[in-house]
Amino acid sequence: MALTMVAVGDTREVLCYRGKDEIKRRLYDLGLVKGELVKVVGENQDGLILLVKGVKIAINKGLASLIIVK
């Protein structure tokens, strides 16, 4: 399922991501690597606030839709 489908407060494991190589590299740089746990801590109309490796990051929903979690 895409990360945009995860409810606030849920923690999921990153399986993979879709998109061009530059997008994949950007997600990797943010710490969203395969096997990493990601918690959705907030959501608004523009995007999601995530907790990754103890750091909060904000990404837009377009980018979040490319991240596949289990």
Rank of each mutant, 00 (worst) to 15 (best):
E43P: 09
A64E: 12
E22C: 14
V69R: 06
G54A: 12
E22N: 15
V33T: 06
L51W: 05
S65G: 03
L50R: 05
C16D: 10
M1R: 15
L37D: 08
L63R: 09
K39Y: 01
I49K: 12
Y28I: 03
L30K: 03
T11Q: 02
L51F: 04
D46N: 15
T11N: 06
V33C: 06
Y17D: 06
V52T: 05
L32R: 08
V38L: 01
L32S: 00
L50P: 05
L37M: 10
D46Y: 14
L32E: 01
V41S: 08
D46I: 09
K53V: 06
V6G: 11
A7H: 14
K56P: 09
L50W: 07
A58Y: 04
V6Q: 14
K53R: 08
V40L: 09
K20F: 08
K39E: 05
A2F: 11
V52E: 01
D29V: 14
V38G: 02
V52H: 01
A58R: 06
N60G: 00
G42N: 01
G42S: 00
D21W: 07
K61T: 12
K34E: 10
R12L: 05
I49G: 04
M5K: 13
L66Y: 14
V33W: 03
K61D: 08
V33S: 03
R18E: 02
K24V: 12
L30D: 02
I59V: 01
Y28L: 03
V55W: 13
N44C: 04
V8Y: 07
G9D: 09
T4N: 10
G54L: 03
V52L: 02
E36R: 01
D46H: 12
R26I: 13
Y17G: 08
M1H: 13
K56W: 13
I67F: 01
V40H: 12
R18A: 03
V40R: 09
L27C: 09
G35Y: 00
L15C: 10
G35Q: 02
L3D: 00
K24D: 07
N60P: 00
R25T: 14
E22A: 14
V52G: 03
Q45P: 06
Y17P: 06
V69G: 02
I57M: 11
G42V: 00
G62Q: 15
V41A: 04
L30S: 02
R12N: 11
M5D: 12
K39V: 04
L66N: 14
L50A: 04
E13L: 13
